[in-house]
Write a protein that binds this DNA or RNA. Sequence first.
DNA 1: TTGACACATTCCCATATAGGAATATATTGG
DNA 2: CCAATATATTCCTATATGGGAATGTGTCAA
Lengths: 109, 109
Amino acid sequence: MPRATTTSDAFNAIAEPRRRDILSFIALQERSVNEIVDALEMEQPSVSKHLKVLKEVGLVDVRREGRQMLYRVNVMAIRPLWEWTSTFERMWRHQLLKVKDRAEKKSNL
Amino acid sequence: MPRATTTSDAFNAIAEPRRRDILSFIALQERSVNEIVDALEMEQPSVSKHLKVLKEVGLVDVRREGRQMLYRVNVMAIRPLWEWTSTFERMWRHQLLKVKDRAEKKSNL
DNA sequence: TTGACACATTCCCATATAGGAATATATTGG
DNA sequence: CCAATATATTCCTATATGGGAATGTGTCAA
């Protein structure tokens, strides 16, 4: 059995670094394909293909404006990723608190 | 060019659902390979292979205890994932606040 | 209608999978 | 040393991929 498809879920879609680059770039503001091409210095077909993957898993939305296609991040689609990582984030926060605790007790000697 | 290797970074390593299952299972407590096999109902070689990937990217640590190998999560290795998703989490938190705001203004009419 | 621009799709290919099955390695107790 | 247990590795194969190159589709302006 090969690896799960890039379009099987958000986890697989964002495994590709260039797709993360794209998401980060359009996070603040919707962008046309060519703006992405110029900003990230990628080939246009490559950008279009990555956007297609991102769209299939719901990570981006599109609207047409004249000849341009304006892509924007669907932030909610990233939520499952954030929630999964958050369970671990709580753990290292605890670890850091314990370290801090020990340091304070030591300085009180 | 094929996809980036599963061992190229944490993002690629956790794209596989079974590896996320493993990480979640050993999150609370270190576990032997067979405990993982039993809990997740996977084949032992499969678990060993997944653990190897997780170890290569630093997501787990191991120690030997007699015949057993005890694996535990290296929570800090998940931090880059959490940080990347957090930039988007801030965005939907803002969105939710705006929705809440509008709702409150409406009820004050 | 035609040309130009913006974007999407198709074809090609080398490559890294994940699972299954079989086998290898390491550790312990007797 | 031997048998049993615990884990790791190897071999196999179908399959999805990302980039490059070329081409297709859609929209506007004149």
